[in-house]
Simulated scan of single mutants.
Amino acid sequence: MKIAIISDTHINKQIEGFKEMIEFHFLEFDMIIHAGDYHHEGALRLLQATGKFIGVWGNADSEEVKKKLNEKEIIEIADLRIGVFHGHGTKKTTIERAFDTFQEDTVDIIVFGHSHQPLVQTKKGVLMLNPGSFTNKRRERWFSYIVLEIKEGEVVVEMKFRH
């Protein structure tokens, strides 16, 4: 299984450009995970239209988006449990908030966003994945996303960067 992981797209008026990005970069994947902050409901609709989308809402999402998604998700793929949460909150760091959100759950991987800073690391045996932002890099030099491949008991994580 090949999964594209994105977050923090913050789409406002660039819906057509976002549609082209999805078609160019992500249609080859078996699944697209978005860790919140779509901003515009149209961005969510475009991802849902692919038929292979899992996502959660983020703190910058509209009420319309929040009504259609959960704040937290856990999905199972090939005996792995993947938690998805945006990472928003007020105390601790983003990675600590994401990790703490799943303390009562058994997860192997946590996907989160919010900081717009790409990250791949482990925390107490859990693989922590933050794809950064594919469309809104803020202070980062590059736009980014993650490719997660799960095959025959192997997990391969590749951070992708673009200008």
Rank of each mutant, 00 (worst) to 15 (best):
1 M>V: 05
1 M>G: 07
3 I>Q: 07
3 I>A: 06
4 A>Q: 01
8 D>R: 02
10 H>Q: 08
11 I>M: 10
13 K>M: 10
15 I>R: 02
17 G>E: 14
18 F>T: 08
25 H>L: 15
25 H>I: 06
25 H>K: 15
27 L>G: 01
27 L>Q: 04
28 E>D: 15
31 M>H: 07
31 M>Q: 11
32 I>Q: 01
36 G>D: 00
37 D>H: 06
39 H>E: 14
39 H>K: 15
42 G>K: 14
44 L>F: 10
48 Q>G: 09
49 A>W: 00
51 G>V: 05
54 I>G: 00
58 G>V: 07
59 N>F: 01
61 D>W: 03
62 S>C: 12
64 E>L: 14
66 K>M: 08
70 N>A: 12
71 E>K: 05
75 I>L: 11
77 I>V: 15
77 I>T: 11
78 A>M: 12
79 D>V: 05
79 D>E: 12
82 I>S: 01
83 G>K: 00
84 V>W: 02
86 H>T: 03
87 G>A: 09
88 H>Q: 12
91 K>F: 14
93 T>R: 10
95 I>A: 09
96 E>I: 09
97 R>E: 02
97 R>N: 04
100 D>G: 00
101 T>A: 13
101 T>L: 01
106 T>W: 13
107 V>S: 04
108 D>R: 09
109 I>T: 08
110 I>W: 02
111 V>N: 00
111 V>E: 00
111 V>L: 02
112 F>C: 06
113 G>R: 05
121 Q>F: 05
122 T>N: 11
124 K>P: 02
125 G>D: 08
126 V>R: 03
128 M>L: 11
129 L>T: 07
129 L>R: 07
130 N>Q: 06
134 F>E: 01
136 N>F: 10
136 N>R: 13
138 R>W: 10
140 E>N: 10
142 W>M: 11
144 S>T: 13
146 I>T: 02
146 I>M: 03
147 V>H: 06
151 K>I: 11
152 E>A: 14
155 V>A: 04
156 V>T: 15
156 V>L: 13
157 V>P: 00
157 V>I: 13
159 M>K: 15
162 R>L: 10
163 H>I: 12
